[in-house]
């Protein structure tokens, strides 16, 4: 198979970027998308040109490193699939493929197709955890978790932090990412003590990073490689609403007691 690749090349965060067109030949249908880029990079290296920088690691769709837009679709737009799991048999021989990095103010381009996603770490730092210092845990079966709750928590916790939700969102909003972590921790019995403070803190951190606001298009959930549902954003909103009015209620209750 043969492809024409239009790839966003940008040397550094400050440098201006532009599309550069490359041809690759000898691609087989069983190769993955990143293996196709490996072939291109080998050729570039042989020609003494800079290989295309792209982030990748596990190449089995779980580490969340890889990701860029292919023809305007995050991760190529196939259901539940990361770029590294995309097989070239999904593309037509001779096709032109446009590769563009995630674009968002909170995700500045580092080089070529690599962006800085450390904003996600800072959102987690604000409250995406259950405080359980080592040594303090009760027996594992002392905490009963109904199966449906455990399943919901797992579904939310499956997020790999790749950033496709932000990339695909017309508003560059990070609500699906934030909601996934909040739902994971907020539905579990272990997560209850910190539930509302966690919600307030993580939402505030998300806003401080400069992500946009959700308008419920559903693009995030459509490209999410782990198929995290849009519904979770609603759950996050509900918890935020409760968190805000609950504080009021508690202050009133404390004052009247």
């Amino acid at each position: 198979m043969k492809f024409t690749l239009r790839i966003w090349r940008q040397k550094s965060r400050e440098a201006p970027g532009k599309f550069v067109t490359y041809q690759v030949d000898g691609i087989t249908p069983d190769m993955s998308f990143l293996e196709m880029l490996d072939v291109l990079n080998e050729e570039l290296l042989a020609r003494g040109e800079d290989p295309v920088a792209f982030e990748h690691d596990c190449r089995e769709g779980i580490c969340g490193s890889c990701g860029f837009l292919i023809n305007g679709l995050a991760h190529g737009g196939r259901r539940g699939t990361t770029v590294c799991q995309l097989s070239m048999r999904f593309f037509k021989d001779g096709e032109t493929l446009t590769l563009e990095p995630w674009r968002a103010r909170a995700f500045p381009v580092v080089r070529d197709l690599i962006v800085d996603r450390s904003a996600f770490d800072r959102i987690i730092q604000a409250g995406g955890f259950i405080s359980a210092p080592v040594g303090s845990a009760p027996d594992a079966n002392a905490i009963l978790v109904p199966k449906d709750i455990a399943d919901t928590a797992f579904e939310a916790a499956a997020c790999i932090g790749c950033g496709a939700c932000v990339a695909a969102c017309p508003n560059a909003s990070a609500m699906l990412f934030t909601a996934a972590k909040l739902v994971h921790l907020n539905v579990l019995p272990q997560g209850q003590p910190q539930r509302y403070q966690r919600t307030l803190n993580m939402v505030a951190a998300m806003e401080a990073e400069g992500f946009g606001s959700c308008t419920n298009h559903g693009e995030c959930a459509a490209v999410c490689p782990k198929e995290i549902p849009l519904e979770f954003i609603g759950r996050m909103n509900r918890d935020l609403r409760r968190a805000i009015f609950r504080r009021r209620f508690e202050r009133w209750r404390d004052a009247t007691q």
Partner: peptide, 17 residues
């Protein structure tokens, strides 16, 4: 014990165990 306390969503039986 530690992982459950942290909120790791292990598979559960219907009884919650």
């Amino acid at each position: 014990d530690q992982c459950v306390a942290q909120g790791v969503p292990f598979a559960r039986e219907y009884g919650g165990l």
